[in-house]
Amino acid sequence: MMSTFFTLALDGISNSALYFLMAAGLTLIFGLLRVINFAHGGLFVWGAYAATFLYSAMHQFWLSLCAGILIGGLLGWLLERGLLTAVYGDGNQQLLLTMGVLILLSELIEIPFGRDPVLATVPPILHHSWVIDHVTIVAYSLFTIGMGACIFGILVYLLQKTRVGLIIRAGVNNQSLVEARGIPIRRLFTIVFLLGAALAGFAGALAGPYYGSITPSMGMDMQLNAFITVVLGGLGSLSGSLIGSLLIGLTTSFVSYYTPSFAVLANVLLMTLVLLVRPQGLFGEGEIV
């Protein structure tokens, strides 16, 4: 019984790492740009396919992870420069437009790779698992958790200790004041969007071997969980994303063990409970109508 618990908990935390990568990007982008990126799942899927394709072709794991980051960042840059700049300030247009990009990205990826699952293999270095006291420890899960923790550390460092981070935090608080200081805020928008998109691509690259196979529709599923995470944790808060992703990751893993299809239901119920008490999410700003 205890061993099942620990196995599931470990599994849940590695789920959380992936959700965190998605949620952190969403939250950063929302905090500064006030845009909810509904195309985030599309960036995730493209990252997953790019990494999987590259790994099966060249068998260079680190290179494939970089490919995921690159493709996510590149798409994010194109999306921000090409489409989003035209609709800043119009919330509904942003929602509709980014959702359209998600549809487009998910459909485009079907053309070369098809709708069926594509196998994603774990690299030999990480293809281990140990059983200690009936608790199964999978090396790749540990790796995923490590990557998530690393990214969290880097983001905290970036936001708290660097000049760019200082400007981002200032921009979140008061955009016009930052602009008045002569800082080109639009460039900052692009940088933050690119960073968030790259994180989504990275999450995709990690998720391929983690789940064992990838499909075009996994972007929407991942995005749903990421949305539940940020709504629960509070939009715009990095620590909210961390706590939210841990809650959602663990719930997913435990509920999936008993009834796989009810994981989404459990997550939405959890979100409902939090929203009943705190409509702005656990760490959200109190912008209540």
Binding site: I36, F227, T272, G284
Partner: peptide, 19 residues
């Protein structure tokens, strides 16, 4: 659940509930 806060939550919550 979702209309008490800014309405962008609404888009996300309806997507999740729909699913």
């Amino acid at each position: 659940l979702s209309l008490r806060v800014r309405h962008t939550y609404f888009a996300m919550v309806t997507l999740a509930v729909g699913q």
